[in-house]
Amino acid sequence: MKIALGQFAVGKIWEENLETVLGLMEKANQQNAELLVLPEGILARDIADPEIVLKSAQPLDGPFISAVIEKSRTMPMAVAMTVHTTTGEKRVHNNHLVIHKGKIIACYTKLHLYDAFNMQESANVEPGTEVPALVEIGGFKFGLMTCYDVRFPELARRLAADGADAFLLPAAWVRGLGKEAHWNILVTARALENTCYMIAVGECGERNIGASMVVDPLGVAILQAGEAPALVYANLSKERIEHARKILPVLKNRKFKTPELT
């Protein structure tokens, strides 16, 4: 299965970000990708305005998502991303969406909010309450995660136990002392300890590192982007998953129960 990772810098104006997204969709589809994964929070971003998520949030039937859905009707490729959506109150959800052939086929509301490193995502964002169901594309079962979720091995293990072949991780990973190393370590660990592919896509604006990457089920980074906007491609292999799980049967050998939400 051929996948595309569309790393870009999210700006303040949602219409401009939408044009970027539609352009990436067109290019990835022309290269016969079956899935395009985009970063976290792609409606709008302004590091000088922490409340931009409130100001820019749209409903799922708003103009941003509606335009992506309409574009997806013209191509066989699926697209995954996260956007901030309105809740009807003075807060928003950080929703990881998968859109395919004119429909939202998956919607996961981020569980673990980024209240760390002197930041507080929960000031404006309401956390989710459910483990996401797996979504199947091109014969692969994908588990959905979002950015800070990667620091919590329970979610990845639950998705793997549910039957995931791969994880999708849109992110906006903030720069900082040791943070790039954290990204590499955590993305690799979640793949290796669950013998799943990890597809991690980072926003690459003023504050965030980019560094989108694909790690295979044995912890091998088969693709990594730099700090600039990029559209890059990788191939997922069922045979590689089967090989990893044959020689490293950690999912069969585990002694702990499948994680549940508290």
Rank of each mutant, 00 (worst) to 15 (best):
M1L: 11
I3E: 08
F8G: 02
A9C: 07
W14I: 09
V21W: 07
V21K: 10
G23N: 05
E26S: 07
A28P: 00
N29Q: 13
N29C: 10
N29S: 13
A33L: 07
E34S: 14
L36G: 08
G41A: 13
L43E: 08
R45T: 15
Q58C: 02
I65Y: 00
V68W: 00
K71W: 02
K71N: 06
S72A: 01
P76L: 04
P76Y: 02
M77I: 06
M81C: 10
V83P: 04
T85E: 04
G88E: 04
I99C: 00
T109H: 14
T109D: 11
L111M: 05
H112R: 13
L113G: 04
F117V: 13
G139A: 01
T146Y: 04
E154Q: 15
L155E: 02
G163I: 03
F167R: 07
G178Y: 03
K179A: 15
N184L: 05
C196H: 13
C196L: 12
M198V: 15
G202P: 03
M213I: 07
G219E: 02
L223R: 10
A234D: 08
L236P: 11
R245S: 02
I247Y: 08
I247F: 01
L251S: 14
K252T: 04
F256L: 13
F256K: 14
